[in-house]
């Protein structure tokens, strides 16, 4: 399922690019395990068709740029070396040449069309959010994400309907302030991952509760602003099972750097099992739910006493996700107060 992401670029051209920019030469190396840490010099290994197209577009444009760069600056440096006064070069006095000027206007224009053509196809594909198999609303809060699985259209339409939870940074305050050593997923770990099935079209609706946020998962090729009072949408179809990490990409206040996004792509069977587990816990009510401590799924009013009191006033009630609202976990609230939030 994992798409190779460099089939269209002739390797000779890629070789030229790699002489110029380390970015290109590491493209191969980066195609390893599909998580953020895998990439250091280039776009992350793509795990969706759109992300692959973006990766290829970037390589294509980079090669065009590299070729033009070499051509233009070979001329410039040739002139700098040979047409200098200390080398005894006498100045020519030519200027204005209509033919030359037309050529260097038309040729770049043609090159632009060569770049715009594949880009246009990708833009149109990116915007096609129709017929999703699963629809999830992602709400940006200062400073965490809330996810609501909505009733959808496809064959997964009822499977996850009604599952809702918050997803906040799981990296400890002690790690951030250098008291404890930082683990491998430093700042890229959350208490509750967004779980989606592989090979299914997942439509993400974004909105926000307070200020602008942006929902971004590089490996999936998705970045969509979350705008308070408005719904926007985007989509992805993951091509490989795995865990993919992203971050909020729109400045949203002081904890902007601390609201990551973690998407766990499971096989369809595993996804169904996960959803069934969640649904069972949801209908059983908060007290009985064997859920992780950081995210006890809670029925809205009845569960309030069961949740530690400190959580209640902090929960952003004004924009509570639709049906049943999980109260924000006590642990994450404590971490937040400790961090001066």
């Amino acid at each position: 399922m994992n798409l190779p992401h460099h089939p269209r670029i002739p390797s000779a051209l890629a070789g030229i690019a790699s002489l110029l920019l380390p970015a290109a030469s590491f493209a191969q190396e980066a195609a390893g395990p599909a998580y953020q840490a895998a990439s250091k010099y280039n776009l992350q290994p793509p795990v969706s068709e759109i992300a692959s197209q973006i990766y290829d577009l970037h390589t294509l444009v980079l090669i065009f740029c590299a070729v033009i760069f070499v051509a233009v600056f070979s001329a410039m440096f040739y002139a700098i070396i040979y047409h200098r006064k200390s080398a005894g070069h006498e100045p020519a006095q030519f200027h204005e040449n209509t033919t030359v000027e037309i050529v260097w206007t038309v040729v770049p224009f043609v090159i632009l069309i060569l770049m715009a053509w594949p880009a246009t196809k990708t833009v149109i594909a990116m915007k096609d959010t129709s017929s999703p198999d699963l629809t999830i609303k992602a709400t940006g809060y200062q400073w965490q994400w809330g996810y609501d699985y909505l009733k959808g259209e496809g064959d997964l339409k009822d499977v996850a309907d009604g599952i809702a939870f918050y997803s906040a940074l799981a990296t400890s305050y002690e790690e951030r302030t250098n008291v404890k050593p930082k683990d491998a997923d430093y700042l890229l770990d959350v208490d509750n991952r967004l779980v989606v099935p592989v090979g299914k079209k997942v439509r993400i609706l974004t909105t926000a509760n307070d200020v602008l946020h942006a929902w971004w998962v590089p490996a999936l090729g998705v970045k969509q602003d979350a705008i308070p009072g408005f719904i926007r949408d985007t989509w992805f179809k993951a091509t490989a099972v795995g865990v993919y990490r992203g971050v909020c990409a729109e400045l949203c206040g002081k904890e902007h750097g601390f609201m990551p996004i973690v998407v766990e792509v499971k096989s369809v069977e595993d996804f169904r099992a996960w959803a069934a587990e969640r649904q069972k816990a949801r209908t059983a009510g908060a007290g009985a739910a064997p859920a992780p401590a950081a995210a006890a799924p809670a029925a809205p009013a009845a569960a309030a006493p069961a949740t530690p009191a400190v959580a209640a006033p902090v929960a952003p009630a004004a924009a509570a996700p639709a049906a049943d609202v999980p109260a924000r976990a006590a642990t994450s609230v404590a971490a937040r107060s400790a961090s001066g939030g």
């Binding site: 953020q36 992350q44 700042l187 750097g257």
Partner: peptide
């Protein structure tokens, strides 16, 4: 390219 957002005071280890 590797995914570091701007306007953040802290970043992942890579």
């Amino acid at each position: 390219l590797a995914g570091m957002p701007r306007r953040v005071p802290d970043y992942a280890l890579q």
